[in-house]
């Protein structure tokens, strides 16, 4: 068999995935921590203040990477949900469901920091702007997936139902964004523009890109550590899980 295909099959085996994820985790957390430290140093210290928003614009280094992550993770969850529904791969079910809380966390960060940014800039904590509203709906979609997953007793059936909901959600998301935009322009004129493309100079840009990469690592680390625990729980009747439980006891 092709070595890559063989590796993929091995990856689908829970004990192999558990060990591999355990080995990767410290590296992922380390890279995430270094990236976040570097990105925030660049963003909060090195980048010059914005000529319109002065130092308040620095919230961008948290807000925008979180917004990107909230969409990226939803996409990741839906793709894994699709794989789980079509090919019934156990690992995909676990990954899709482990991604949901992380995605909800990033969506919440995005909304909260957006609110903290909006207060000094627009003079209000919340505005029914198209992006904000879509992001709020996204948070509800995440909560729906998590809620459905935890409401069904059988873990695998729960994962499949929640994955199906995630797929419905990904169809719904562009519709929501488009309709909210249309609704908003109907009620009021142009919305507040945050920043034009000309405003961002390279000293402001590179910390943003580093933060975008670092949050990907943080997501990967959190995802793998969640997936490991979920696998352990799901496979608790299997021999490899027992061995891990007994090994932890002697070391503890």
């Amino acid at each position: 068999m092709n070595p890559l295909v063989l590796w993929f099959h091995k990856l689908g085996s829970p004990p192999y995935f558990y060990r591999l994820a355990g080995r990767l985790l410290p590296w992922l957390w380390g890279l995430a921590a270094i990236g976040i430290a570097a990105g925030l140093y660049g963003g909060l210290v090195l980048a010059p203040p914005d000529y319109q928003q002065s130092d308040a614009f620095r919230i961008i280094y948290i807000h925008v990477p979180s917004a990107w992550m909230s969409l990226f993770i939803y996409f990741f969850m839906a793709v894994n949900g699709f794989i789980a529904l079509v090919w019934r791969i156990k690992l995909s079910e676990i990954l899709a469901m482990a991604a949901a809380p992380v995605g909800a966390a990033f969506t919440f960060i995005c909304l909260a920091t957006g609110s903290l940014w909006g207060k000094p800039m627009w003079g209000t904590w919340w505005t029914w702007d198209a992006r904000l509203t879509s992001e709020l709906v996204l948070l509800f979609l995440y909560l729906g997936v998590i809620g459905l997953y935890h409401a069904i007793e059988d873990r695998r059936q729960a994962a499949r139902a929640a994955a199906f909901l995630a797929l419905i959600g990904i169809v719904n998301l562009p519709i929501v964004h488009f309709s909210v935009k249309w609704w908003n322009t109907l009620h009021q004129g142009s919305t507040v523009k945050l920043f034009g493309p000309s405003l961002i100079d390279s000293r402001m840009l590179w910390p943003l890109l580093i933060m975008a990469v670092a949050t990907k690592f943080a997501f990967a680390a959190s995802l793998l550590s969640r997936a490991r625990v979920d696998l352990l729980e799901l496979e608790s009747g299997k021999d490899w899980a027992r061995q891990i439980a007994l090994a932890e006891e002697t070391s503890a």
Binding site: L44, I62, A112, W117, R228
Partner: peptide, 21 residues
Amino acid sequence: YVWGSLAVFFVVLGIDAAAPL
């Protein structure tokens, strides 16, 4: 506002990292 955003970021990610442990 800036440090508040930073606090939200780290608190939420901290909870997120601690939950699986």
